[in-house]
Every structure is written in structure tokens, then in C-alpha cells.
């Protein structure tokens, strides 16, 4: 196994996934340019948060004027799935140098996790593993920055009459379908959606979190029962 191939292998492994990532980034940029937080702060989320779903929810909620605490809580609930990835990667990353253990989690995404954990089942060399993850993750990072920037530039030119804000729920529809693979996950989605609708009148925009947490609880319960 040649080490310098690790980075290139990571880049190659993640390239097909860019077909899904780039349009999402473009739409996020268009929506950010359209929102009340403005293009500069909208783009800053790509650097500071670097997570599409969390960025989209953050921009949407800030645009609606939701309470800051609710915006933060919602984005962190969305981001909490990364703890699962962190747990799965921990035994591999524990072989990396200290700087890598601190720096690489910044670029940990759904896609970088997915391609790396599959490759890690086939290889043992820690240096290769590190370069593979770095190649995959940095390719995604660069593509995301370019896509969101392009979206922001294009978005400023588009007319309001296109109802482009409807692209926000559409992105979440696609992500929803991609994350439902089992019956307990289906139950989590149905309960999460239904309770979010029922709880919508709750103050401070808390309905979303109430719905999400109910869905998670229902998913865990369904997992116990259906197993």
C-alpha cells in the first residue's frame, strides 16, 4: 500500500457523492443570499459550521426571527449524529498523531465518514487511513465552499417570484428519504413530523425540537419492539 495514494484514493472514493453535495451547496447559497442574515453571514456558516443540514436550519430559523437559543439547540440536535460517527472512527483515529485527532474532526461529514469507514475495514496502516480520510474530507470541504459561494453569487440575481424558499423543505425531503432504511427509522420520521406539526404553536419555535425528540424516542421504542 503506497502512502501517497491514500489522499488520491480518498478523493476518488468521495467524487461520486459530489453529485448530491454540489446541488445542495448551490441551493444553500441561493437561500442564504435571499435570507435576512445576508450573503456574508450566510457564507460564513459554510466555514464556521460546515454541515449542510445544520446550516440550512440555522439560516431558516434566523430568517424567521427565532430565539437564538432555539436556533442553537436545533442546529446542535441536527449535528448530534456526528457523535455516532465520532464513536465509530475513534479506534482508527486513536492511531493518528495528536494534530490530526484535533484537526480532522472539523471536516468530518456524513459522506467523509461513509467512505472512510468502508475503506477502514480493508486496510490497517494508520498513515494510509489518515491520508484517505483527509483526501475525502478536504475534497468535500472544497466542493462545498465553491458550491455555496457560487449559489450566493447566483442567488442575488434571481427574482423573488420563483418561491425559491421552497427548496429548503425539498432538500430536507431528499435527506429524509436517504436516512430512512428501516422500519424504526420510518416510525421516527412519522412521529417526528406529526408531533412537529401538532407542537408548532409552542413558543420560541420549540415545536421543531419537541417533534424531533419525540421522533427519536419513538424510533428507539420501535427498535426495541420490532427486534
Amino acid at each position: 500500500m503506497q502512502l501517497r495514494e491514500g489522499f488520491v484514493d480518498g478523493t476518488k472514493a468521495v467524487s461520486p457523492l459530489l453529485i448530491g453535495v454540489v446541488p445542495f451547496g448551490l441551493v444553500l447559497g441561493i437561500i442564504a443570499a435571499d435570507s435576512s442574515i445576508g450573503p456574508a453571514l450566510g457564507y460564513a456558516t459554510s466555514i464556521i459550521i460546515f454541515g449542510g443540514a445544520a446550516q440550512l436550519a440555522t439560516i431558516q430559523l434566523l430568517d424567521e426571527g427565532a430565539l437564538a437559543a432555539v436556533v442553537i439547540a436545533t442546529a446542535l440536535v441536527i449535528g448530534s449524529r456526528h457523535v455516532m460517527y465520532s464513536a465509530a472512527l475513534a479506534p482508527h483515529f486513536s492511531e493518528f498523531p495528536r494534530w490530526a485527532r484535533y484537526a480532522l474532526p472539523y471536516v468530518l461529514t456524513d459522506q467523509a465518514f461513509a467512505v472512510s469507514i468502508v475503506r477502514y475495514q480493508e486496510v490497517t496502516d494508520p498513515a494510509y487511513k489518515r491520508r484517505f480520510f483527509t483526501g475525502a474530507a478536504l475534497t468535500l470541504w472544497g466542493s462545498w465552499q465553491l458550491a455555496t459561494l457560487t449559489g450566493i453569487v447566483v442567488g442575488g440575481q434571481l427574482p423573488q417570484s420563483l418561491s425559491l424558499e421552497f427548496a429548503i423543505p425539498l432538500v430536507f425531503v431528499a435527506l429524509l428519504v436517504l436516512t430512512v432504511h428501516s422500519r424504526p427509522e420510518f416510525v421516527a420520521a412519522i412521529v417526528g413530523g406529526a408531533i412537529a406539526v401538532i407542537a408548532a404553536p409552542a413558543p420560541y419555535g420549540l415545536g421543531l425540537i419537541i417533534g424531533a425528540l419525540s421522533g427519536v424516542a419513538a424510533g428507539v421504542l420501535a427498535h426495541r419492539i420490532m427486534r
Binding site: V77, T179, A189, G192, G193, V197, A200, L208, G215
Partner: peptide, 26 residues
Amino acid sequence: ALLPLRYVPPAVFAALVAPAVLLQQG
């Protein structure tokens, strides 16, 4: 300890979509 995290993505995404498309002025 990790099981609940598996259900975060479907639950959150559905909770984001449903009110946004089913409700009009509440």
C-alpha cells in the same frame, strides 16, 4: 448509548419538513 443518535436524522428532517409544507399561518 449510541442507539438514539441513529434516529436523529429521520426524526429531525421530518420535523423540519412537515410543519413547513402542511401549515399556513399556523
